[in-house]
């Protein structure tokens, strides 16, 4: 069950974010774990999980790792860590498209070679789809479809 709020730091919500919120609302059953997403800019990283007023951590990949360790998702294996880190790095490299493209190729090559866990699928899908949004490159589409097919 996911709720969305927009912080005053966001002047205008991008179209992709609006579409994402609509898609989530369509899929949401209205029960289960409650998640509140606050769209906000000007943070040191693009994703912060606030567990309580004094505890938070950064990164979508780290959220997936956390859920794995809490038993919500399949446990991550040692070999997954490198892929989770590569996915994180892919988002961080958005200012250097050439390096980002090289890393996307490497990430796709690696996930084709090893059996992916649920955590890796979630994290790499998100990183590659954001890469696609930014670059309009359709070369990631096959991998995105493969991941969707596994779920």
């Amino acid at each position: 069950y996911v709720n969305f709020f927009t912080h005053s730091s966001v002047a205008q919500l991008p179209e992709a974010a609006k579409e994402f919120a609509e898609e989530i609302s369509r899929l949401s059953t209205g029960d289960g774990q409650k998640v509140t997403v606050i769209w906000k800019t000007g943070m040191p990283a693009n994703f912060e999980v606030i567990l309580n007023p004094t505890t938070s951590f950064w990164g979508e990949g780290n959220f997936i790792r956390y859920l794995s360790r809490m038993g919500v998702l399949d446990n991550t294996q040692d070999t997954d860590d490198m892929l989770l880190d590569m996915s994180h790095q892919l988002l961080v490299l958005s200012d250097d498209r050439k390096e980002q493209t090289k890393l996307a190729d490497r990430l796709m090559g690696t996930i084709r070679k090893q059996k992916a866990s649920q955590s890796v699928d979630y994290t790499t899908y998100s990183a590659l789809r954001n890469f696609r949004n930014a670059t309009k490159s359709d070369k990631v589409d096959v991998v995105l479809q493969d991941i969707m097919g596994r779920l």
Partner: peptide, 23 residues
Amino acid sequence: LPDEYVIAVDPATIPYSLLLMLQ
């Protein structure tokens, strides 16, 4: 597990992993 997760997200990147978790 906490009752609620509060996540702050920069809308320049979309947290598609949440979408997959609902599917």
